[in-house]
Amino acid sequence: MDGSLMNKIMNKDLITILFTPLLFLLIIYPIVALLTNLEVPGVRETLMDGLFWDSVKNTLLAALVAASLCVILSIGFGYCHLFMRNSLLYKAANLMNDLPIALPHTVAGLALLLAFGRTNFGFAGPTGLAFTMIAVVLAMFFVSYPLAARAVASGVDQMDLESIAVARTLGDTPTKAFLRIALPALREALFSGFVLSFARSLSEFAAVIMFGGNVPGSTQVLASYVFTKVEEGEVAMAVTASGFCIFLSLILVVLVGQGRRRRA
């Protein structure tokens, strides 16, 4: 390449020149492609479909419960991260935090199926916990929990640890210091953990379909509704449901942005 042309490109900020088309091609273009395929009849048909609204209700409800569970468990992890870093429990918990991220979600779904299915949880029903809303919640929780735990651990890392030390010398046991001093300081991290795990739960498909199934009106969630509609050849309805997913995601993005601004 001509030296002066190269210089011109370098002067024009090479990274921006490379980044901009890739961002448009790989992130923005697919979203635009989906939204430009929205059709009025498809929208009307989907909005009139009771099963669509059932899947919306199932998704929101299960994601809400799963994200709440994630936050509760991540508080426990935060405690271990603060006070028990050399313990075997913490090391095991830390390892298990990373595992669901690396695992294919079909494997996670299968693991849950074997753990809570008919064989071990036959007393809970003919299929154990599998193919129920509890299964949907557990599948969402399993894949989303690492995000909440990481958010809380990062909050603990940014905390003023001397304030915990002072609280201990003022008579607090580790539990009291955690509840009275650490937890209020982790408010923002817990909020981030909740929103991130809620968003992850909304989009979960593989683990949910393996363990919770895809029973329309019962355990079907938005992701599996889209999948079913594509399989049935109802692409316009699948596109509408997908557009609705994007709308939900945008609300979450705004919420996360507001949380960040509040922190700043």
Binding site: S163, V166, T169, P184
Partner: peptide, 12 residues
Amino acid sequence: GYVPQQASLFKH
């Protein structure tokens, strides 16, 4: 009684 370098007051 422990007084740290930064005051480390309980902010909330």
